[in-house]
Nucleic acid binder design. Structure first.
Lengths: 212, 212
DNA sequence: TAATAATATGACGATTCCTTCACTTTTGTT
DNA sequence: AACAAAAGTGAAGGAATCGTCATATTATTA
């Protein structure tokens, strides 16, 4: 019976002076670095504080517990990536399928690769039971965004739009996670955006029929 | 600097009587169950032993440490899935692309869904730094298998075979992991094999050109 | 400048966990 | 049945970690 400790995750104290904002940011970045270098198992609050150049006590003034630290990093990452994709999708409403796929895939790959350290570091965090909710919520929003934009496509329609949108989502996130986590060869990484576009478009064109 | 403690992972004692084999199996299965129910963070040797209906001492007679326990489960899983795919690929050497994709995808999905509890449980384990090597080795073998079988296709060839094979691999593993881990709706899960076939074939047909 | 508020520190209590080992019980053999 | 080998047990040493709090330092305000 897993304790459903709905721990408080909001900061206990808000930074009011400039120096403390610096500290908060340093702790945030240190969390990513420790995750990358040591792994989740060896991430301790003391290690994070040391890497950030402060002390545990300070850490606990801004993050109520270790969990909150990991949540903060995960939340910002999925939030930013989601927001980028949402904006890209919005900008291609009512365009042909190829334009939609191109814009969305590019935005997604761009957002992920711009934050590749975070993406790598968070792989193990996202796998923990405690983080599922956060990730799922973000995925639901993403699915809604993709469903909406696919519906506006001017040249094609889908028999089963929910499935098509889900596969589009899975085809972007799944392989990209695999690629980033697995440390693909540079040749692959460079070509990723184009390859992923092919993958998604290849599927969606098969799942669609032309509008008369 | 992460300690590269290449811990001994082979069992300290081999089971010689029937009862001990039962125990070893029970511990193995209990590991999966604890992972599923409690998560990696809360997996302790005592919890595993209790769930298996034995004691910690017994556990340590067959697994030298906690890490070895997780490795054993992960290794069997990737080994079995890899083997299934390998056999499927072998059986469609020298056939057209559609036949190859169909056989390989089906075998992969079959193997994964037959072991869906394991797959779910291992998601967090595979994310740990310590497990990377094991997973990477399996992925390398898989890539070699896919490269080999794609080369034998009778109706198409690839400009860039390594990239095509990598994407084929990523298109199978990535979305399936996403689907299983995210707990997709049943409608999606039921249609998964067909959808994944579309995804892979859609990509590969774009990346290929017909043999004259 | 003096007083107050904000920020920072790190030793420490409490807890959890890994692993060992001296010992018991069960099974197989002579 | 007597003995040896295999299997099983769980208390406890030792190590690691979380989060607190009494105290110290720095900034802001009056």
């Amino acid at each position: 019976m897993a304790k459903s400790k709905d721990a408080n995750l909001s900061p206990r104290k808000k930074p009011r002076q400039a120096r403390s904002q610096v500290t908060v940011d340093a702790i945030f970045e240190a969390t990513i670095q420790v995750l990358l270098v040591e792994g989740l198992q060896r991430l301790t609050t003391i290690r994070v504080a040391e890497r950030a150049g402060t002390s545990v006590g300070t850490l606990y003034q801004y993050y109520p517990n270790k969990q909150a630290l990991l949540f903060a990093v995960l939340q910002r990452h999925v939030g930013e990536v989601g927001e980028h994709v949402r904006r890209a999708a919005e900008s291609v409403h009512g365009r042909p399928l190829t334009a939609i796929v191109s814009a969305v895939v590019r935005a997604f790959v761009q957002a992920k690769t711009d934050r590749i350290d975070e993406a790598r570091a968070l792989y193990s965090v996202a796998g923990e039971l405690d983080s599922r909710r956060l990730v799922e919520e973000s995925e639901e929003r993403g699915l809604a965004v993709l469903t909406a934009v696919l519906r506006t496509s001017t040249d094609v329609q889908f028999d089963d739009l929910p499935t098509a949108a889900y596969m589009f989502m899975a085809a972007m996130i799944g392989p990209t996670t695999y690629m980033i986590e697995g440390g693909a060869p540079p040749s692959i990484m460079r070509a990723w955006s184009g390859q992923l576009e092919s993958l998604c478009l290849g599927y969606l064109e098969r799942a669609a029929y032309a509008i008369p």
